[in-house]
């Protein structure tokens, strides 16, 4: 009987420790910029959602397209209406895996370089992507950031000939999230 009690408590503890090994945010920052000699376009999103499972290194992002803010209101409207079609495809998502998760010690402060690979879905099109980034562990919280490049063309985002010189073929994306432990 005692053995079962022990097993039971182990299970319960084991389960709670798995719970504590998740980190999340609802106000992650995602910025993209397109730089051409004619025009520099930059947009900021401060409402990215991210969950990281420290136990197995899985990481997921969801970003509301309409939450991207531009300097020019008309640009923002065109971004939503003509390019991203945010009425039809309201969110961009990423589901991926940190390949070297076992190298990170979440219990003590430190900075770790990580490689993330997974599926990114933008404008209803899914592409396999991978990039490197950093995870900083401090006081039980995480700060993760990464910079990578993406091509609108890969996600079936059509750019008409008249503005082709204004919009870069390769867009720089920067992601920065501060993740707090997830306790339910």
């Amino acid at each position: 009987m005692k053995r079962f009690a022990l097993l039971f408590s182990l299970l319960v503890f084991g389960f709670t420790s798995i719970q504590a090994q998740k980190y999340f945010t609802r106000d992650g920052k995602v910025t993209f910029s397109s730089d051409t000699p004619i025009e520099k376009i930059e947009a900021h999103n401060q409402k990215a959602t991210c969950v990281l499972n420290a136990a197995d290194g899985r990481m997921e992002f969801a970003i509301l397209i309409k939450a991207f803010q531009f300097e020019k209101a008309l640009m923002q409207e065109h971004f939503n209406e003509n390019y991203m079609e945010s009425g039809t495809y309201p969110k961009a998502t990423f589901k991926g895996q940190i390949s070297n998760i076992e190298a990170i010690d979440f219990s003590k402060d430190g900075n770790y370089e990580v490689t993330v690979a997974g599926d990114m879905t933008i404008h209803g099109v899914t592409q396999a992507v991978s990039t490197t980034g950093n995870i900083l562990v401090k006081d039980g919280k995480l700060s993760a950031d990464a910079t990578f490049e993406t091509k609108p063309g890969d996600y079936d985002i059509k750019i008409p000939a008249v503005v082709r010189k204004n919009i870069a073929e390769i867009v720089q994306v920067t992601v920065a999230v501060d993740l707090a432990p997830f306790n339910k």
Partner: peptide, 28 residues
């Protein structure tokens, strides 16, 4: 417990959905 753990493992973001303060999306 396993089942519960499994269900949550399936989709990490759905963890947040339960207590997600729903946002208002304005039509433009």
């Amino acid at each position: 417990f396993c089942l519960q753990a499994w269900a949550q493992e399936d989709d990490l973001l759905s963890l947040l959905d339960d207590d997600d303060e729903e946002t208002t999306e304005y039509v433009t």
